[in-house]
């Protein structure tokens, strides 16, 4: 911890950053995001295996952008998000310094995004086993039971849009759900609209979702919404060999095609 704090202190001193986004301890054992604007606050900075939040989402926030030079303490999901977002040209207006702590508890300060890319490719995360187990289970059900499972899940959705808020890939200034001419998605928190909302969100994340699972983890009613995108990521890799958040350059899966893409359902 001391190592990390010293490193960040150094970055503050030599003027590389004037805002550090990291983690601090909180009421529960789950560390929470913290924002360090003064060197005197560095003491609260920690990094553990339980640091789950994908902090890259904050790089879209105007209040954060104002700081100009931003340091970000990234877990692997965050790094992946940073790679994907860079490939989508999202960081043209900020200067950022990326830090991570590796398995050996060494602090790494990346000098550019290429280094991040190399690190991500060397440490590319697998799908979580828990998610895969649940997906397998769902796929073993009959279609009617799957429909029942998901519609009951979505009936609990209250449309708080926390899934959208925590998603680093959901950076559109105006979301489809806010368009009302036409009203694509019903605004009331009722099942049909909820279902459409989650399908729409998954589709708009196709090939872009970096699989951090934040949407499912923070859902206040506990809907495993991330399963939709996990499944999609699996499919995209299987069908087209693409991985999101893997390379700085390259098209995303739905923005590109191969003339010999295979499918078995078009007559």
């Amino acid at each position: 911890m001391k190592l990390l704090q010293n490193k960040v202190a150094e970055l503050f001193e030599n003027g590389t950053i004037n805002l550090m986004i990291g983690f601090k301890e909180a009421l529960t054992k789950q560390p929470v995001p913290c924002f360090i604007e003064k060197a005197s606050e560095i003491e609260q900075l920690i990094y553990t295996k339980d640091c789950k939040n994908n902090l890259s989402v904050y790089l879209h926030k105007p209040e954060v952008k104002q700081a100009g030079k931003i340091g970000i303490l990234a877990n692997i999901a965050t790094l992946r998000a940073l790679v994907q977002l860079t490939s989508e040209n999202q960081f043209w207006d900020i200067e950022k310094t990326v830090l991570t702590v590796n398995d050996k508890e060494e602090v790494i300060v990346f000098s550019d995004m290429e280094e991040v890319e190399a690190y991500v490719q060397a440490n590319f995360p697998e799908f979580s086993e828990e998610d895969l187990k649940l997906l397998d289970y769902l796929e073993s059900l009959s279609r009617e039971d799957r429909w029942k499972y998901w519609t009951e899940q979505f009936s609990a959705c209250i449309k708080c849009y926390a899934c959208r808020a925590v998603c680093p890939m959901c950076y559109c200034p105006q979301c489809t759900v806010e368009c009302n001419q036409p009203q694509w998605i019903k605004t009331s928190a009722q099942t049909t609209g909820n279902l459409e909302w989650h399908i729409m969100r998954a589709m708009h994340l196709a090939g872009r979702c970096i699989n951090c699972g934040e949407c499912g983890r923070i859902c206040p009613v506990g809907i495993p919404v991330h399963l939709l995108t996990v499944k999609m990521n699996q499919d995209l890799f299987k069908e087209f060999g693409t991985k999101s958040g893997f390379a700085l350059k390259g098209d995303y899966a739905l923005n590109s095609f191969k003339p010999d893409d295979k499918e078995g359902f078009i007559k």
């Binding site: 279609r143 429909w147 499972y149 998901w150 519609t151 939709l228 999609m232 499919d235 359902f265």
Partner: peptide
């Protein structure tokens, strides 16, 4: 199609 299928 695959998402719809997963949702049932």
């Amino acid at each position: 199609r695959s998402i719809l299928d997963l949702i049932g």
